[in-house]
Amino acid sequence: MLIFSVFKTLTDQTVTVELKNDLSITGVLKSVDQFLNIRLDSIKILDEARHPHMMAVKNCFIRGSVVRYVQLPADHVDTQLLEDATRREAANGKR
């Protein structure tokens, strides 16, 4: 739930999603759900030459389970807040 909340605070920010098949997609985070499925707008593929079939795609829905990493805008992440929220969730014992 905590990570879901973090992603919600990052809506309308630009993120780079790296998939488990090595495809990297940069785009504007439009929405996220509890499974960490992600909707991106105005997308750009990192290595377009290797993925020409993606050239015409402007927005996409990414199933959460195929994500390896998401690169986040560091200036929009409050690390102190994150650590406190993580300790609070750990103390609540729901994991």
Partner: peptide
């Protein structure tokens, strides 16, 4: 990378 989310699986 500056700030990174890593999927747990």
């Amino acid at each position: 990378m500056n700030m990174l989310f890593v999927r747990g699986d």
